[in-house]
Amino acid sequence: MSQVNEVLANDFEQEVEAYDGNVLVDFYAPWCGPCKMIAPIVNTISQERDDLKVVKVDADNAQELMVKFGIRGIPTLLLMKHGKVVDTKVGAASLSQIREFTSQV
C-alpha cells in the first residue's frame, strides 16, 4: 500500500522520468472541481497497486511540464512506464475507468 506524494516540477525528472517502474501522474489544481472528484479515486488506486507509484503535480506550479506533455486541461492523468508516457486520460473518471486505464501497466 503506497500513498500519493506531491511532486514539484523541479523534482519531476528524478521522481518520475528516472523512476524504473510504472507511475501514474495526476495533474490537478486546488481550485479544480473535477480534480477534487477524482482525488479519492487516485488515492484508492495508490492503495490497491503496490506496483504503481502514484504522484500528484499542481498544474498551477508546473507550467513547463504542462507544455512538455501537451496538457491543456485538468485533471489529466499520465500513465508512464520507465519514464515514457504510455497513455493519457483527461477529465474526471470513475474508479472502474481509472482501474482500466492503469491496467495497461
Rank of each mutant, 00 (worst) to 15 (best):
K68C: 06
I45W: 00
G70C: 05
A9W: 02
L77R: 01
E15Y: 12
S94L: 09
D11S: 15
A39K: 14
V105P: 11
I38P: 02
S2Y: 06
E15N: 13
C35K: 05
F101S: 08
R99I: 06
D50V: 01
G73D: 12
L8F: 11
A62C: 09
V85M: 05
V16S: 08
E64T: 12
S2E: 06
I98T: 02
E64L: 03
N22P: 02
S94I: 00
V16Y: 12
K84C: 00
P34E: 04
I41M: 08
D50N: 15
A9H: 03
E48K: 11
V57M: 09
I38L: 05
D20Y: 00
M80N: 07
L52R: 14
N22K: 14
L52F: 11
K53R: 15
I38A: 03
E15T: 11
S103A: 13
C35N: 00
R49D: 02
E100A: 06
V105Q: 07
P75M: 09
S2I: 01
I71F: 08
S96F: 05
Q14S: 13
D26C: 10
L8D: 11
K89T: 06
N10S: 13
L24W: 05
V7G: 08
C35G: 01
R72Q: 14
F12R: 13
T44N: 02
A9D: 08
R72D: 07
V67A: 09
Y19I: 05
I71G: 03
I45Q: 03
P40S: 03
R72K: 14
S94H: 12
I71S: 09
S2H: 08
I41N: 10
L8A: 14
G73K: 11
I45S: 00
L8W: 08
F69M: 07
A93W: 05
I41R: 12
D50I: 03
K36T: 07
E17Q: 15
V4N: 10
A9G: 02
